[in-house]
């Protein structure tokens, strides 16, 4: 078992943080890499990009939004309990280099994945402009943490309950008009990453996105996570999860992410009684 040593509820309990004991993974993991978690015997294998690692404590941290059957099951796990199975670190680490000014854009729980990448870019001496957003103020996560590692932080909410009223892409446009930016990193909903990539394209700003398609093994064996990148098929698990946003076929990715929509509803329904007393 992989024991949970710290658990926090964020965004009104819709987002959960788990710090999990896994010394071998913690020692190896780099920003941008992911793990695959499975709660119990009948559980599904769920890939989650790590939000943090602590090699000394021998732990890794994941932050996930409760969206379906499996994440609802994860939410039930308390400190002292744990995941039956976990593997990692998987995928390539994020591309970190000193380029000058970088813009880091995060939406929803994507901010959790963005955080270690942003920190890495900051540590390399880049000037970091971060733009993070959520639907509403209560759903915003890690704004203090992002603030601490950014030279400039812009916060957006779709409903205007906090920070800029509007989308992260609105702020991004303004930033790009005013600043010379060498690199953009975007992590969040697929649609957000798509629009960020479209906005940076005319500026010719290298734009990296972190993808989380459906996969099973995470080691290149099933091919379920294939993504069309520049017309070529790539496996997000071994070639990614980070890709050039200007080359990713986001529309296809969105369709592939919907592959089990019906089953997800069915599965959640079948277990609802157990999950929501």
């Amino acid at each position: 078992m992989f024991e949970i040593v710290r658990r926090e509820e964020m965004a009104k309990g819709t987002v959960i943080l788990n710090e999990i004991e896994a010394p071998r993974i913690a020692r190896k993991a780099e920003p941008g890499q992911f793990v695959i978690l499975k709660a119990n015997e009948t559980g599904e294998r769920i890939p989650l990009t790590m939000a943090d690692t602590d090699p000394e404590r021998g732990t890794i941290t994941v932050i996930y939004m409760v969206v379906g059957r499996s994440t609802a099951l994860f939410r039930e796990l308390r400190v002292g309990e744990g995941y039956q199975d976990m593997i990692g670190p998987l995928g390539r680490s994020a591309h970190l280099e000193r380029v000058g000014t970088v813009v880091c854009v995060g939406g929803g729980t994507g901010v959790a994945v963005l955080y270690p990448i942003t920190r890495g870019l900051k540590q390399l001496g880049n000037r970091v402009i971060s733009i993070i957003g959520a639907r509403t103020k209560d759903l915003l996560i890690l704004d203090d943490e992002m603030k601490a590692i950014s030279d400039e932080l812009h916060v957006c909410t779709d409903d205007g309950s906090y920070g800029h009223h509007g989308f992260v892409t609105d702020v991004l446009k303004t930033v790009l008009e005013e600043e010379v930016v060498e690199l953009a990193v975007a992590v969040g909903p697929v649609l957000m990453m798509k629009f960020v990539s479209e906005i940076t394209r005319p500026y010719n700003i290298k734009t990296l996105v972190s993808l989380n398609p459906i996969m099973i093994d995470g080691t290149g064996m099933c091919g379920g996570c294939r993504v069309s990148v520049g017309g070529e098929n790539k496996f997000a698990c071994i070639d990614g999860p980070e890709f050039d946003g200007h080359k990713v076929d986001f529309d296809q990715l969105m369709q592939r992410l919907q592959a089990y929509r019906q089953e997800e509803i069915q599965s959640l329904e079948a277990h609802r009684c157990k999950l929501e007393p």
Partner: peptide
């Protein structure tokens, strides 16, 4: 054995 098992 879905939905007894979670993987579809």
């Amino acid at each position: 054995r879905f939905p007894e098992y979670d993987t579809p």
